[in-house]
Each structure stands twice: as C-alpha cells, then as structure tokens.
Simulated assay, not measured.
Amino acid sequence: MSTDFQHARIALGQRLRELRAEGGLTGRQLADRLGWTQSKVSKLETGRQTATHDDLTAWAQGVEQPQVAAELAARLRAFESGTRSWRRQLAAGHRPVQDTVTAEHERSTVKRAWQNSVVVGIFQTAEYARHVFNANADLHQSPRDVEDAVRARIRRQELLYRPGKKYHIVMWEAALRAQLCPPAVMAAQLDRLSGVIGLDTVSVGIVPFEAPLKLAPANGFWIHDERLVIVEDWHAELWLDQPENVSLYLRVWETLAASAVYGADAHKVITRCRRALGAL
C-alpha cells in the first residue's frame, strides 16, 4: 500500500537505521540492549511497524544519542494522523482508490461504519454511486474514470454475502435525505437499503433526526477489526492505526450507535424518507 502515512513511516525507519549504524550496532545488538526482539527492530527500520513515542525514546537511549529523541518524536507526531491527500490518491483516478478500499475490506472480518451525509458505499446502487463519483471528480478535478470506479464499488458488495464477514453500519437520517441525485435514483437507493436489512452479515442502524444525541454527528469513518480507522475529510483521508486513536473512534461509534434504531424501526425511518420523495 503506497500512502503518505506509509512513506512517512518508511522515512522514519530509515532514520532509525542511520542512528543505529552511527552507533556501530547491529540490529541484534540493539535489540539485546533494549530487551526487544530482533524482529521488532527490523520492522521499525523497514516501516512495517509504527513506533510509539516510548519506542523512539528507548531507541535514542539505546544508540547513545538521547538528544535525538525530540527529533524522532516530532517526526512521529507529523504522521501519526496518517494523512492521505485526495490530490495524491486521485491522481490516477477513482478506480485505484476503490481497489485499495476493497483490499482492506477483504482483509477485515468485522467492519463498523458511521456516515452522516451519504449512503455508505457498500450499500450504494450503481446509479447513486455514479452521481457521487461524478460530484467528487468535479470537486477534486481528478481523472474521470467514473464507470470503472462504479464497477469496483459494486463488486465490493459481494463481500456482504460472504460467510464470516460482519458489517455494522450506522447512518444519520440526513444521509437518507441528502438528494445528491435525482429523486428516482434516491428512491431506488432507499429501496436497496431496505433490502440489505436482515442479511445475517449486516447490522444497519439509523439515527433519526428526533433521536437524542450524546455526540455531534460529525464526519464519516470506518473501523476495520479494531486495528485501523479510515476517516474521510474534504482534503484527505486519515488512516489511523495507533491503539489510542482506534479506541477513541470505537467509543465514538458505540456512542452514536446507541442513538440508532434497528430492524423494523429502521425500516420505518427509511420508509418515511422514501415517502418524502413523493410517488415514484
């Protein structure tokens, strides 16, 4: 996976390797000095594992250069958010982004999502997705590979029917009312949403407008197996894998999910949104 986050992690690893070499230490020697496994040293140096602040402090002490601890900490803070700019991601179009997302879904068993403004991609109809991709291509002035992107998104929906996968999706009612497409397309999208409720791999919660909220219904995010959070913003995605960040987003998701209705009550919210579109 080529991301801004991963590039920064690799660069940090290269700096750690330089410091170890300057200290005249092998990976094994440093590992022994720090009481770590050699594999941890290797993973940190090659960017396959994200260092903690404690790891970096220990490294600086281990190579007998405690003065570099502040530099290393600053490097870590700079990429802890895992910012992946849309300009960079969309340079080759939307299809590669969809393929990257699908790879994470394939890798993950339990997925949780919160969405406040748009029907989540895993539930989108082709026509609804087409309008979403066209709008984003206009916004980011990116290559217009919309049809390839739509096909990739629809293929990902096959995972909804794969035994062992679990999708726990919570959306605000606003996502069901935002007319990002013509009313007839939105009506078909709401019908599709009604159809996925009841799948044994899927839990769908809708937070009605009238529901009491303990948190503001802010921007959408996905949590993959309690190991990775992907947050969408206008300028970038944030890929967060620090345990404390994942734990925070889990608490956010659980808090918002507690305000949602499910099953027959969720159907009622979808139905009233459908009726608001008129007779179509």
Rank of each mutant, 00 (worst) to 15 (best):
Q179N: 10
R227S: 10
F209G: 01
E237N: 00
V170K: 10
L190S: 04
V146M: 00
F123W: 12
E226Q: 13
W234L: 06
A135V: 00
A152M: 03
Y167C: 02
K165F: 04
A126D: 08
V118S: 11
Q124I: 11
A211H: 06
E244Y: 08
R153Y: 03
G220D: 12
V120E: 09
A178N: 14
D225P: 01
L180F: 15
V120W: 14
A187G: 13
K166G: 09
P182Y: 15
Q189L: 09
N136K: 11
A137W: 00
I230S: 12
H168I: 03
G121Y: 04
W222D: 05
I230V: 14
A129F: 03
D148T: 12
A149L: 04
F133S: 09
A174R: 01
W239C: 11
L215R: 13
V119I: 14
A129Y: 03
L240M: 15
V132W: 03
M186F: 05
P212W: 01
K165Y: 04
L240F: 04
P243G: 14
G195Q: 10
N136Q: 13
S194K: 12
A187S: 11
L176C: 04
G198M: 02
D191E: 15
Y128K: 08
N245F: 08
P143H: 02
V231T: 06
V204N: 12
S194P: 00
P212T: 07
V246R: 03
V119Q: 08
R192Y: 09
D241G: 09
A175Q: 02
Q179S: 12
V118W: 13
N219P: 01
H224S: 05
D148G: 14
A236H: 12
V132H: 11
L190G: 11
P217N: 02
R227G: 02
I206Y: 00
V229R: 12
A211L: 09
M171R: 02
R153Q: 12
C181F: 01
P183F: 04
M186Y: 11
R156N: 07
L160C: 05
A218M: 08
G195T: 10
S203R: 14
V185F: 07
V170N: 04
V120F: 15
M171V: 15
H131I: 13
A218G: 07
A149Q: 07
S203I: 13
V170E: 01
